[in-house]
Every structure is written in structure tokens, then in C-alpha cells.
Design a binder for these strands. Structure first.
Length: 267
DNA sequence: ATCAGCACCTGTTGGC
DNA sequence: TGCCAACAGGTGCTGA
């Protein structure tokens, strides 16, 4: 599923396409797609979109009245603007606009969720500090890791603490900083922490510049794939030679997620 | 606090 | 060719 760079790319694509559009109605084709805690979607009829942004891995569609329609794409969600009336394969929900276009949410695995929240209610989403937020400096990162015995990769994936990092970029940032994913988060040296934070920022920003990684399903708001998958150094490369030292990349399972690392470059 | 296991779902891939 | 198990950019819950 989309991680921070993919969600950022989708939001940047949707923003100019949706600004100023007025909702006519919402159609729900798979009821569980709507989060049980969501405000009633019918109340959006007549509302005008102000902008589209990102909160962690949520796409945040902000209305001029302050309400926010959040969309989490989980593993296979796609969010695109469609002009033709023909429903997409696996379309689960659609926001129709007065001009006849619609925002279509398609999701093969039905894991994705849509939720309408009130003005200023971003904190209801329960996500921690954004991985690209300026406030996440060495000091804040050290605070996040201090005393934690959980593997560093597991901590990087914990959205309640650090928002936006998913499996691909956690693996890549750990390779770039030469840290083994199983290392205890609280046991990293100051130098390793700083290297990791820098690597995390660098890999996320470079992935955004490449419009994300398309390993399988991901497409942006225009339906186009990203290209960062060509730059991946460990993710999905089990058994293939390390791009730095040629040692075969190892795959282990950590917190039920495929975890890839070079047993030589990462200690 | 942490973690294994499972649940949610469908589609694709790789081994036999 | 066919079958079946493993696996998938995520998260939330339960129970140990």
C-alpha cells in the first residue's frame, strides 16, 4: 500500500484537481469502507473542497467549512478522479461532484477506510509526529527511541509514534544507515540515530521526487505508477546480491512483516 | 510494554 | 495445466 511518499504524491495530484469542486452526493458500494466512527457522509452534499493534503498515511480532503474527509488506502486503495460514468474495477465508494466528475475510491482487498471528521479533529486519527515534520529533529527522535527495547524497525512502523513510514521505506532507511532491523531501538548510539533520521528523510524525499514506489498496485491520482521501485536496495530483494557488497540479502519476519537486510552492511 | 497470532480481503506468483 | 500455499506498500484486536 501507499506509504508517505505515495500518499503525498496522490494528495499533490488531487489538490489542483479537486479544489473548488462541490459535492452532489456520495455513493457507498461496500459499507465497511466507511469507518464506523465517521460522521454521516450524506451531510457533505453541497460542501465545497478547499484543499487536499496528507496526515501520516491518510489523504485529507479539507472542505471550506473545516470538515475533513480522510481516506486511508491501506494495501490496495486507489483514489482517482474519473469523468466517465463507468464504475472502476473494485470501486467501493465515490464522491460525485456537481460538474459530473467523481472522486473514485477503488480497493481490491477492501482494507481501506474513509472517515469524515470535524474541523481541527486531526488528532482523532491517532498518528504521531510526521516523519518529514521539521519538529522531528535529533532530539525529538532520540526521545522517541529512548528506553525502548522493541526492534528499531518495529518502532519505525508504529504510526502512533512516527507517522508515514511503512515497510518499504523502513527497510530502505535501515540499509542506508547500516543498521540491522532487529537492533533494539533504545540501544542505538547517538551517531546511529542521527544517521538513521537523515537516511529516513533522504529516502522519503527521494521517493516523493520519483512519485513513489510501484511494486504492485500503487498508482497516483492520475492513475500513473511511480518509479522509485527501481531505486530500492533491499526491499523485495531476498537472495539477490547486496548492491554495496554483493552478499545475498536476507529476509526475516519481524512483527509479521517481511524484513530485508544485508547481513554484512547492517550490524 | 511487547508480541505472536489472527482478522480483515482479494489477487498474484511460484513450487510441485 | 492445475492446485495450493505463500505472500502482499497496513492496522487493530486479543490474550499471554
Amino acid at each position: 500500500m501507499p506509504e508517505l511518499p505515495e500518499v503525498e504524491t496522490i494528495a499533490r495530484g488531487l489538490d489542483p484537481a479537486l479544489r473548488g469542486r462541490v459535492v452532489s452526493r456520495i455513493a457507498v458500494y461496500w459499507h465497511r469502507t466507511v469507518d464506523a466512527r465517521s460522521a454521516g457522509l450524506g451531510s457533505l452534499a453541497g460542501a465545497t473542497i478547499g484543499s487536499v493534503g496528507r496526515v501520516g498515511k491518510f489523504v485529507a480532503i479539507r472542505f471550506v467549512d473545516g470538515r475533513i474527509l480522510t481516506v486511508h488506502l491501506r494495501m490496495t486503495g486507489r483514489l482517482t478522479v474519473e469523468r466517465s460514468r463507468k464504475p472502476l474495477l473494485h470501486e467501493r465508494l465515490a464522491v460525485f461532484f456537481r460538474d459530473g466528475a467523481r472522486l473514485a475510491f477503488a480497493d481490491a482487498r477492501k482494507f481501506g477506510r474513509v472517515r469524515l471528521i470535524g474541523p481541527g479533529a486531526e488528532s482523532d486519527l491517532g498518528v504521531g509526529i510526521d516523519a518529514l515534520h521539521a519538529e522531528l529533529d535529533d532530539r525529538a527522535f532520540a526521545q522517541l527511541l529512548r528506553g525502548r527495547r522493541t526492534p528499531i524497525k518495529t518502532l519505525l512502523l508504529d504510526q502512533r509514534r512516527l507517522a508515514g513510514v511503512g515497510n518499504i521505506y523502513a527497510n530502505e532507511a535501515l540499509f542506508d544507515s547500516g543498521i540491522r532491523p532487529t537492533r533494539r531501538a533504545g540501544g542505538l548510539s547517538a551517531g546511529q540515530r542521527n544517521k538513521l533520521l537523515k537516511a529516513l528523510r533522504r529516502v522519503l524525499l527521494r521517493a516523493i521526487a520519483s512519485r513513489g514506489s510501484s511494486v504492485d498496485d500503487y498508482v497516483d491520482a492520475e492513475g500513473l505508477p511511480g518509479s522509485f521501485q527501481k531505486s530500492l536496495k533491499v526491499y523485495g530483494r531476498a537472495g539477490l546480491p547486496c548492491r554495496r557488497c554483493r552478499t545475498p540479502i536476507k529476509r526475516v519476519v519481524l512483527a509479521q512483516r517481511g524484513t530485508f537486510y544485508c547481513p554484512v552492511c547492517q550490524q
